[in-house]
Design a protein around this nucleic acid. Structure first.
Length: 864
RNA sequence: GCGCGCGUGGCGGAACGGCAGACGCGCCGGACUUAGGAUCCGGUCCCGCAAGGGGUGGAGGUUCAACUCCUCUCGCGCGCACCA
């Protein structure tokens, strides 16, 4: 409720300011967690999903959130996932054009192949593919399958056979992002690497944009940093090492080409393709034994237990291109097959891991970098310095600082065609298929060509939505065959083709729901052009003030959510959005302009709430005890939204008492006693008895005096400014200050109380509306609905004091507080300060060296 | 190990470089009450009768003035982690 309360307050605030506010709610209900719950309770996922939605909806509605329920959606609804499948088709039918740096329709790739000779060269298209687009129709089946493969390899959604994370207990493969410390993110089950044929999404094509565009959006630094780390950009060079008397070449990636002269050995990942080919007969046994050992280790063991380096010599040597020296090639599991080229040049003098390895296996350690400080030991020094011992027959970088050395050696490598500058990313393509029942089916069928080769083909848009088959046994299989394969009648189509039986992951639906909210019922498009550009488009809606006016990037004005989606939903959604942007379906390059992470609410014991600890506060409990308004108010009063903070039952009572004071500010206490008595004697009259409650007789339709206006306008100013900065806790404290003061008033002007209720309404809407209604009735005011009553504007003129208090310091220490006329000039203020008796006590007999007068703030007298 | 964030009363937390502790909880005292776990009034950083002194994890620095800026350091939280 914390994040939802925050957005509801802002939605109500912005609505009162006259903005057109889109504040929606929906259900992201496909995927593993929902299906796991269904299996656990032995029900069909559709049943449990519907039941859970009903429960959540009841709770959410009990909190009085002002959602536009006409836009409610569920990702499991065919009217919704039809468009999830539609977007998948767009991914399938697009490729990433590196020259234009954007996604393009796949037909353009085909056109480019036939029209642009330069492009053909780039793509390394075989000569027989050259011809006009039309000519392709007359290709032989062999040619067609070649062309198909060529195109398929470039789709943003593609099929790939490679080692993937397989989770036995969940019966499905998982994406990198869903595997945490060698276990599944859902359930914490072990996962293993297993080669499988799977659907992938080419998110790596967007690595650079996903990284650089972070600078255009207003997210927290930590969240941006998490995405940056996950994308893991690193600049370096690829260098090619020859193997003597062999055709084979080993390419390594290094961020320190300047240390090339210090490369005294090479290491290949045990899984590297060349390992078996280069291993000498004498070393064959040792190498294959090591490979088997490594294969048995889980990834967890490979990383966590890797304090001690292991590896074996392959018997082969490579030639260091800068000095022609032969260096031994080892294999070791500290080199990962999945990063860079799966091979490294080892520079033990200037890399911690290589240093450990070389020390253990007695490999030579040669200094090639001089640390900037001679006191630092060069052994294991990994920072920047000056190159030494780096002179070869053709190239020397000795004496150059690291940055220049890198530049020079890169240029040399490039001129010799031995290497080139490269950028590497940790980000891998997104594994997009799951062997589960509860997800969107792929709009894909499989066919065989004349020579019997299996190939995939997209269904036409008219075939959407592809509904999943009704299955009584929807549980996953042990073999990894998707449960959908059981529905033979569904799988096999009349024309002999078969349906794809994998389903999409739980993240698919949430990748674009914010777009569907804009136009939730549109039957013709995933979102209508007009609706999209009205809510999301450039130029930014000039009425939006949440949006940073300096940013050219519009999008969703405010997204409140937890950090748990940092490298999952929030990365995936940005990726999909960028593809849709490239293809011209949305008008912004980024989906979410401002994102605020609400901090977790801990249990009263300062621990994370969990069933096992028994410290969970169920939403219904405080709502029943103190009511929705107090609950909302406390959620916001606990502390800053972003901060982690513990729940406190006593704290809830505090804001409950505040609401009681608000009530008594408006209501005649005697009438309340009458109401309570009547309720016990005549309970059958029920709600009608509420009329017994009368407004306090001090509330009058009179002009407010200036002190009252001052109190009101100070409150307006503070609440307005705090809401603009998402500082709910201090806004509430300002409301409390107002009430504390107003309680002492002998006469309470209606106009002031009304404005106060408008300020209170976003936080405590129920109480505010009740009192608003009573005021309207009692004073026959126009019956304007409170949520649309215009937000009051504070008048600075009313806050001006004729006399102000100025603290006076002597040598920076507070000695007195003096009263001066607000319009007093600096000289007058200084004189008044010096005239103060208390001040004189500390200045007597001393020389005044300097007097600092900060207008309307403070006086500091410096004496010696 | 690297990155990000945070250290303020008994507690949650306030403070554009300008009166440290707003507001709330708790506690102490009083009023009203048969009663109070309701409500209202007053008090509440520490030492001190007071005058005054000390105080924002610790040590330095910049400044007339530092919770706020800089350097180092300690502690806590989160994230990443053999990424070449």
């Amino acid at each position: 409720p914390e994040g939802y309360t925050a957005t509801d307050i802002l939605a109500r605030y912005k609505r009162a300011q006259g903005f057109n506010v889109l504040h929606p709610m929906g259900w992201d209900a496909f995927g593993l967690p929902a299906e796991q719950f269904a299996i656990k309770t032995g029900q069909h996922p559709r049943q449990t999903t519907e039941a859970n939605i009903a429960t959540f909806k009841r709770q959410i509605q009990s909190l009085g959130f002002s959602y536009d329920w006409s836009r409610e959606l569920a990702t499991t609804d065919p009217d919704y996932f039809k468009w999830t499948q539609w977007i998948f088709l767009k991914l399938y039918n697009s490729y990433f054009d590196p020259e234009l740096n954007k996604a393009q329709a796949i037909e353009l790739l085909e056109d480019a192949l036939s029209d642009n000779p330069k492009r053909k060269e780039e793509w390394k298209v075989n000569a027989y593919l050259i011809g006009t687009h039309d000519a392709w129709k007359n290709f032989t089946s062999e040619q067609k399958s070649f062309r198909r493969e060529f195109v398929d390899r470039r789709r943003l959604a593609y099929v790939s056979e490679q080692p993937v994370w397989w989770c036995e207990q969940l019966g499905t493969v998982l994406a990198n992002e869903e595997v945490v410390d060698g276990k599944s993110e859902v359930g914490g089950f072990p996962v293993v690497r297993k080669p499988m044929r799977q659907w992938m999404l080419r998110i790596t094509a967007y690595a650079e944009k996903l990284l650089t565009d972070l600078d255009t959006i207003d997210w927290s630094d930590s969240l941006k940093e998490m995405q940056r780390n996950w994308i893991g950009r690193s600049e370096g060079a690829e260098v090619e090492f020859r193997i003597p008397n062999s055709e084979f070449r080993i390419t390594v990636f290094t961020t320190r080409p300047d240390t090339l002269f210090g490369a005294t050995y090479m290491v290949l990942a045990p899984e590297h393709k060349l390992v078996d080919r280069i291993t000498t007969p004498e070393q064959r046994e040792a190498v294959s034994k090591y490979k088997t050992e490594v294969a048995k280790k889980s990834d967890l063991e490979r990383t966590e237990l890797a304090k001690e380096k292991t590896g074996v010599f392959t018997g082969a040597y490579a030639i260091n291109p800068v000095n022609g020296e032969e260096i031994p090639i080892w294999i070791a599991d500290y080199v990962l097959a999945s990063y860079g080229t799966g091979a490294i040049m080892a520079v033990p003098a200037h890399d911690t891991r290589d240093f450990e390895f070389a020390t253990k296996f007695n490999l030579p350690i040669v200094q090639v970098v001089e640390p900037p400080d001679p006191k630092i030991d060069w052994r294991g020094f990994v920072g920047d310095g000056t190159s030494v011992n780096s002179t070869g027959p053709e190239i020397s970088i000795t004496g150059l600082p690291t940055a220049e050395a890198k530049k020079k050696i890169n240029a040399w490598l490039e001129s010799k065609r031995l290497g080139k500058k490269t950028i590497n990313y940790k980000l891998r393509d997104w594994l997009f298929s799951r062997q589960r029942y509860w997800g969107e089916p792929f709009p894909i069928v499989w066919k065989r060509d004349a020579s019997g080769n299996l190939y995939h083909e997209a269904l036409p848009e008219s075939a959407l939505p592809v509904l999943p088959p009704e299955l009584t046994d929807y549980k996953p299989t042990a073999t990894g065959e998707p449960p959908l394969a059981r529905a033979k009648g569904w799988v096999n189509l009349p024309d002999g083709s078969t349906r794809e039986t994998n389903t999409m992951p739980q993240w698919a639906g949430s990748c674009w729901y914010y777009l569907r909210f804009l136009d939730a019922k549109n039957p013709r498009a995933f979102v209508g052009k007009e609706a999209e550009s009205y809510w999301m488009g450039t130029p930014p809606n000039p009425k939006s003030e949440i949006r940073n006016p300096k940013s050219a990037t519009p999008g969703v004005d405010l997204y409140v959510g937890g950090t748990e989606h940092a490298v999952l939903h929030l990365l995936y959604a940005r990726f999909w959005h960028k593809v849709l942007f490239d293809l011209g379906y949305v008008s912004t390059p980024e989906p979410f302009f401002k994102l605020v992470n609400q901090g977790m609410v801990l249990g009263e014991d300062n621990q994370k709430m969990s069933k096992s600890r028994g410290n969970v506060i169920p939403v219904d409990a405080p709502v029943q005890e103190v009511g929705t308004d107090a609950f909302r108010l406390y959620e916001m009063f606990m502390g800053p939204l972003e901060m982690v903070k513990p729940w406190s039952t006593q704290g809830v009572e505090g804001v409950y008492r505040f609401l009681g004071r608000v009530w008594r500010l408006f209501v005649d206490e005697k009438s309340e006693t009458e109401f309570e008595q009547a309720e016990t004697t005549e309970p059958q009259k029920g709600a009608g008895l509420l009329n017994l409650i009368r407004l306090d007789s001090a509330i009058k339709d009179v002009t407010a005096i200036s002190a009252q206006l001052k109190t009101l306008h100070a409150c307006i100013k503070k609440v307005t400014e705090d809401l603009d900065n998402f500082r709910f806790n201090t806004a509430i404290s300002a409301l409390m200050v107002f009430v504390n003061d107003a309680m002492t008033w002998e006469t309470k002007p209606v106009s002031v109380l009304r404005d106060f209720l408008i300020l209170l309404q976003p936080f405590a809407p129920h109480l505010a509306e009740e009192l608003w209604e009573k005021l309207n009735l009692a004073f026959s005011l126009q019956p304007l609905a409170l949520p649309y009553a215009p937000w009051p504007k504070f008048d600075p003129a009313l806050l001006v004091e004729s006399e102000i208090e100025i603290p006076v310091q002597v040598n920076g220490k507070l000695r007195d507080v003096i009263k001066v006329p607000a319009n007093a000039d600096n000289a007058a203020v200084e004189a008044a300060a010096k005239a103060s008796e208390k001040v004189q006590q500390f200045t007597a007999g001393k020389t005044v060296k300097k007097v600092i007068v900060v207008p309307k703030k403070l006086v500091n007298i410096v004496v010696a």
